[in-house]
């Protein structure tokens, strides 16, 4: 791909037959600013500050999953014992 570019990219309206995708201006005109892979790698959503309530909820759900997994394990052992 040709890398010598104007300092500013003019958006171009892509119409008609197959677009000239070897032209970076065409590719950039078709994508949103944060849709380009390089832009996504540089721009990230920062950490969200979690309130005490949200933390408590996430911990509660985590404990729920662990307890439930133990119960599933017990129930499967029972089922296998019953089957044999």
């Amino acid at each position: 791909m040709k890398r010598e570019l104007e300092p500013n990219i003019e958006p171009i309206i892509v119409t008609g037959e197959q677009p000239h995708l070897e032209d970076p201006r065409v590719v950039l005109s078709l994508l949103e600013a944060d849709q380009v892979v390089a832009a996504k790698e540089r721009m990230r959503f920062g950490r969200q500050k979690l309130s005490g309530g949200v933390r408590a909820m996430l911990w509660g759900l985590r404990i729920y999953v662990v307890v439930m997994l133990v119960i599933v394990f017990i129930s499967v052992l029972r089922a296998i014992q019953a089957a044999h």
């Binding site: 500013n8 950039l28 005109s29």
Partner: peptide
């Protein structure tokens, strides 16, 4: 549009 963004010249490369 990515073409209209301030980082467009850099992204193009």
């Amino acid at each position: 549009s990515a073409a209209a963004s301030s980082t467009a010249p850099e992204l193009a490369g």
